[in-house]
């Protein structure tokens, strides 16, 4: 009896946290999306979201997130594969993971210096004779920096699933006459698809909602859903519209998680 009481007491504080900071905020976002800027109840925000301006923004945000995810994946998969082949793989993995511990802002800030007019990148271009270019504040720099930031997050799950792969399976495939390429796309890739899916999850959703990088690196040339939400909340002060975009971002997130759902098979 006494144990039940104390148990309920400490569970209670946790449930309180769930209600106040997990459930309530989502409900509030949905609730606020139903009010226009004057505070009247209406669906005007949803109507506005389906006009050309917002749809175009959503599509371009999708396009950039897709581009970032694909490029990150194309770099991360071979890297993770090579990592599993190296001698001290945990050490190399650690070296790749360390940058992900450094504050995102510091990384963005470092690129401000590298890509700036007098930065390293431009001095290099001058040496090879391409002359000074405007690198910072373009969509190229935005994609480049985002890819750089997401690479460790993509490598980690892929590395783990590649590492768990039983090497005898590969030998068996080769013995049965599969070429290296066939062995890769018939054996290795299907068996590591779970790692790939979680890699896509941790890249695509954050890429949709980046807002600091678009301001610092892309110089407002790229507008992602995250930037739009930040803009509506903190600059325009139109919380209704910001909430509406947030509702759609949540929906997209749920849909994407559902599509890339990794069902754990019994091990």
């Amino acid at each position: 009896m006494e144990s039940k009481l104390s148990r309920n007491l400490y569970s209670f504080s946790y449930f309180l946290w769930i209600v106040i900071f997990v459930i309530l905020p989502i409900l509030l976002i949905v609730y606020y999306s139903l009010f226009d800027i004057e505070g009247n109840f209406s669906f005007v925000n949803y109507q506005k979201f389906f006009t050309a301006v917002y749809l175009k923004m959503t599509l371009s945000s999708f396009w950039y997130a897709f581009l970032i995810t694909v490029i990150t994946f194309l770099i991360a998969y071979p890297t993770a594969y090579l990592l599993t082949k190296t001698k001290h793989k945990q050490f190399w993995l650690l070296l790749i993971i360390v940058p992900s511990w450094i504050n995102l802002l510091l990384k963005a800030y470092a690129f401000l210096g590298i890509f700036g007019t007098y930065g390293v990148a431009n001095s290099f271009l001058k040496i090879i004779g391409m002359g000074e270019q405007q690198i910072l504040f373009t969509d190229f720099s935005f994609v480049f920096v985002s890819v750089y930031i997401f690479i460790p997050f993509m490598i980690l799950p892929i590395f783990n699933s590649l590492n768990e792969l039983n090497p005898t399976l590969l030998d068996a495939a080769r013995d049965l006459g599969a070429s290296a390429w066939t062995a890769f796309y018939r054996v290795i890739f299907p068996l590591t698809i779970d790692g790939v899916k979680s890699g896509w999850q941790v890249t695509f959703i954050p890429a949709l909602s980046l807002f600091m990088l678009t301001r610092l690196i892309a110089g407002n040339k790229v507008i992602t859903l995250g930037t739009a939400i930040e803009q509506q909340f903190l600059v325009t002060q139109d919380w209704g519209m910001g909430s509406t975009i947030a509702v759609f971002l949540i929906l997209i997130m749920i849909l994407f998680m559902f599509l890339t759902n990794t069902r754990k098979r019994g091990v």
Partner: peptide, 19 residues
């Protein structure tokens, strides 16, 4: 429990601002 880990920072920030 995992909702706050997977949801994007912008949404956490915006919803907490409202809260």
């Amino acid at each position: 429990n995992n909702v706050l880990i997977v949801s994007p920072d912008v949404i956490i920030g915006a919803s907490f601002l409202i809260l």
